[in-house]
């Protein structure tokens, strides 16, 4: 698969896909989208990059091991649930803060944190599987 065209396009394609995955993640709060589908898009971006340029550049680019990324996502999701202990409400209750920025209100919530956690779990787990499969193929 290491053709010149693919190798040239893959980095741009991957970065666009990662950007798009973040868009889908944030959009998912009120409209179709969300952490799971966003994570899948990002994972396919890394998979494409891996197919084009080999697995080790992807691992270098990710810096953290994919499973560690998945772990951090799980931790984020758990912490998103734990925040409610401070508010005296049951586990996993959605809590919002509204931060005014440039005259607009930015709504941050534990729900968003949870969704970002899901995003990382999916990115980490799927990328880990994809990279492992690609590694075998290139042997």
């Amino acid at each position: 698969m290491r053709t010149l065209i693919f190798r040239t396009v893959a980095p741009y394609l991957s970065s666009l896909m990662v950007l798009f995955s973040v868009f889908v993640l944030l959009r998912g709060h009120n409209e179709p989208g969300g952490g799971f589908i966003g994570g899948l898009i990002a994972a396919s971006a890394f998979a494409i990059y891996g197919i084009a340029c080999g697995v080790s550049p992807v691992r270098r680019a990710l810096f953290f091991h994919p499973m560690a990324i998945a772990g951090s996502g799980l931790m984020m999701a758990s912490i998103a649930g734990l925040v409610s202990i401070l508010a005296g409400v049951p586990f996993m209750t959605g809590l919002w803060v509204y931060i005014p920025i440039f005259g607009e209100e930015l709504a941050l919530s534990t729900v968003l944190l949870f969704d970002v956690g899901v995003y990382f779990v999916v990115v980490g787990a799927i990328t880990s599987i994809a990279l492992a499969l690609e590694e075998r193929a290139t042997d």
């Binding site: 091991h65 499973m67 560690a68 998945a70 772990g71 951090s72 996502g73 799980l74 931790m75 758990s78 912490i79 649930g81 734990l82 409610s84 202990i85 005296g88 409400v89 049951p90 586990f91």
Partner: peptide, 28 residues
């Protein structure tokens, strides 16, 4: 409001999740 003691219901589970994810991060 949820009483702090009622958090014990969920605590074993959350502890396992948080520590499990932490250990996943320091797997090496």
């Amino acid at each position: 409001p949820a009483a702090l003691a009622d958090w014990l219901v969920i605590a074993p589970l959350v502890l396992c999740m948080v520590l499990g994810s932490l250990l996943l991060m320091v797997r090496k």
